[in-house]
């Protein structure tokens, strides 16, 4: 990896939260506790990567993104994005990034989308020619024409997210932060947004950091994933390796040709049995071929399937 565009070192954020909600207790009668949302996370992301940032609810994903985008000040640790300390040089920093929070809106609520985009052109000082180019491109990729002249408050959630994606990229940011951009969207809308992200990354080399609870987003977009839990890094590496390392056992499903009283094979454990069908689990130490060999020596087999654990299983085991 050459010079990373995002570099975190022991980044930490703690919140002080009241044990009783505010308003129900008087100021002097309140008790507090400290919540560590992000707990000494270190990572580096290179230019042009598309990285999936995963973790269960409350893991600290959004908090990390808020620090990387300059909204929150870290409690401890260092953070550099494109060579800058986001919260210290907020304005220069945000001029070079694009951000979309799912189910939130950055457009002017009562103004037509097109007017919002025009305003953003001035906010980010985008040269008019470049703005026109981007607009044409995004109109095609995100089908903006369907709702471009409607005020944001009249858009469906899917339309609103498309409009927000366009808004986040009008100023050609080198970095795109997406916090659950597909939340609440239907399959078609999700596909369109994924295709757009892929396109933007390929065509412009935009670095993308994406959080999501929809694993198809990850499968279709990311080669690299970072998994965190309770504010700590659990995994950082290739998506394929994640399954291999944490995926646990594979499963072999066997349909026997006869009714056997008992079925067993060394190297695998019987997980379930139903009529003539049985499912065995086996670890990385044995190969499927060896198991099948042993089984067919003893029994007559009708059919076989080998199942690899998927990301969902893997994550379920990790969380």
């Amino acid at each position: 990896m050459t010079q990373p565009i995002i570099a975190l070192e022991n980044l930490t954020k703690t919140f002080r939260v009241a044990l009783k909600p505010e308003g129900r207790s008087l100021p002097w009668a309140r008790t507090w506790k400290t919540v560590t949302a992000v707990d000494a996370i270190s990572l580096a992301i290179g230019r042009g990567e598309v990285v999936g940032y995963l973790g269960p609810n409350g893991a600290g994903k959004s908090t990390t993104i808020k620090m990387m985008t300059g909204i929150l000040t870290p409690t401890a640790g260092t953070l550099r994005v494109a060579g800058r300390v986001p919260w210290r040089e907020r304005r220069q920093h945000v001029a070079g990034i694009g951000v979309v929070f799912g189910q939130r809106n950055t457009l002017w609520w009562d103004l037509p989308v097109q007017e919002s985009l025009d305003l953003l052109r001035h906010v980010y000082r985008v040269p008019p020619a470049r703005f026109a180019e981007n607009l044409t491109r995004f109109r095609a990729l995100l089908d903006l024409d369907e709702f471009r002249f409607k005020p944001a408050r009249d858009l469906s959630l899917g339309q609103l997210m498309r409009a927000n994606l366009a808004a986040a990229l009008m100023h050609d940011p080198g970095l795109l932060f997406l916090d659950e951009p597909t939340i609440g969207l239907d399959v078609v809308a999700k596909d369109r947004i994924r295709a757009f992200i892929r396109e933007i990354n390929r065509e412009r080399g935009v670095t993308v950091l994406l959080t999501t609870h929809d694993l198809s987003d990850i499968e279709q977009l990311c080669e690299r994933v970072i998994v965190i839990d309770h504010g700590r890094t659990r995994y950082d590496g290739a998506l394929s390796e994640l399954v291999e390392r944490y995926g646990g056992d594979r499963a072999l499903q066997v349909d026997f040709a006869d009714d056997y009283a008992e079925v067993a094979v060394e190297g695998a454990t019987l997980e379930s049995r139903e009529g003539r069908r049985a499912v065995f689990r086996f670890g990385r130490g044995v190969t499927a071929a060896a198991l099948i060999g042993r089984l067919s020596e003893r029994y007559t087999l009708a059919d076989l399937t080998v199942r690899e654990p998927d990301i969902e299983d893997t994550l379920r085991r990790m969380y």
Binding site: E22, G23, R24, S25, L26, P27
Partner: peptide, 8 residues
């Protein structure tokens, strides 16, 4: 009665 702060 729950909103003590606001009442005060």
């Amino acid at each position: 009665f729950r909103y003590r702060g606001a009442n005060l």
